[in-house]
Design a protein around this nucleic acid. Structure first.
Lengths: 217, 217
DNA sequence: ATGAAATCGATAACAATATATCGATTACTA
DNA sequence: TAGTAATCGATATATTGTTATCGATTTCAT
């Protein structure tokens, strides 16, 4: 197996979730001062296990690290960005321009990871035709046609729970292959569609629960 | 071990994340029609493993299920709500009333899990003094004093990445014990503070990556 | 009653992930 | 140039979470 075609599928979801933090930390280093960074240093800074960091980096770095010095910062940034899709931009559409939808449309963070929300859709006539975060808002009726023509394959659902299933079906009809779902309901979609649920209330509940656990002991 | 003082700490984060979906599904059932629901039924509806559901429910249900019939719906709802903190409301403050902060302040979902954002803080004079989602926005200077007096112990950070660390320190000084952090940076806080990171860009990146993996195979 | 079907709880096997250990390699220092 | 310390990669162990299996229990139909 050549370096170029690493077996990316070997990277776990958890690793994937940590990579952005590595990138973030490494970028924050003064590159005039250091040219390389080691796994133990990153681990300490992010409160992670040294071996875990090393394994994660091994999965994405094309050159590996050197004993005693670590990984070349410049190379590592390149590798991480490449891996996170910096070079092949993935486009997404968003449905539901409420508070949360607007927040996502205005969110700058996506660009850094090779992701871009290109257009939005909503039922509400008041927002249709306007621009939010620089993206135009279209009526739901245009969804199918526009998605097909743009070849977009990621859909973001930020509509109320009761409309989510219906919207997901629209998206599937429009050829969407992956859905990022913010509605707190389980979506029924064909097997080939990847769904990632983002239940904000549940997330906060988890935090609150963890806190209570800790206080109890 | 009595029923009342179950060993809640045995519940994993993953389980905790699934509980709201169970609750949601069970509530959606017509209680005039059914009085009990079984693990296999829930599993099928939510596309999960039957045994997993049973184990999860066993961890929160006070009475257990009956062979052949399953779990009593009414009891189960009570247990789940109890477990998720329905009865002892946890209060939180939010810092950073931008798009995302506003979205969270207006988000109705929290109430169902015994969570409540009580006030918000921001640097920007334009939003200070206004109400968002029915909650008043105060200047940052008031944070420490107000949090102390209200005895709030959860803080939500929705400020730009560069301000997050500073805000986290403010929150810690204000006696906050748990932080829900939306800024894509690792926060350095005392060990006793629980931090939960919510990196939206990373989440979408994970989805996008998953999709690409799937398409490759 | 009795037998069949569904479900439970418990335990066991499996899978994924995280952490620890260890020899090999490199850089620095005396 | 030899010794020491830091780091790497690889391998082994431990931990955690998921899935399968199995005997026991309950309901329902005969």
């Amino acid at each position: 197996m050549k370096n170029q075609d690493k077996d990316f599928s070997a990277v776990s979801i958890q690793t994937l979730g940590r990579l952005p933090y590595y990138l973030n930390f490494i970028k924050s280093l003064d590159q005039d001062k250091y040219t390389s960074v080691s796994a133990p240093v990153i681990a300490k800074a992010l409160n992670l296990n040294e071996v875990q960091v090393r394994k994660d980096l091994a999965a994405v770095s094309s050159n590996g690290g050197k004993p005693k010095t670590g990984f070349d910062i410049e190379e590592l940034i390149k590798d991480l960005e490449e891996f996170l899709g910096y070079n092949n931009v993935d486009e997404a559409v968003l449905v539901g321009v409420g508070h949360l939808g607007s927040a996502l449309l205005s969110y700058k963070g996506f660009e850094n990871y090779g992701l871009k929300i290109v257009v939005a859709f909503d039922q509400n006539e008041a927002v249709v035709g306007t621009h939010v975060g620089g993206k135009q808002v279209f009526p739901l009726e245009k969804l199918k046609d526009l998605c097909w023509r743009m070849g977009v394959n990621i859909g973001i659902i930020t509509v109320p729970a009761e409309d989510a299933q219906e919207v997901s079906e629209l998206l599937v009809e429009a050829g969407i292959l992956a859905i990022w779902n913010f509605a707190p309901v389980h979506l029924h979609v064909p097997d080939y569609v990847v769904v990632q649920n983002e239940n904000l209330a549940a997330s906060l509940a988890v935090l609150s629960k963890n806190l209570n656990e800790k206080l109890k002991v």
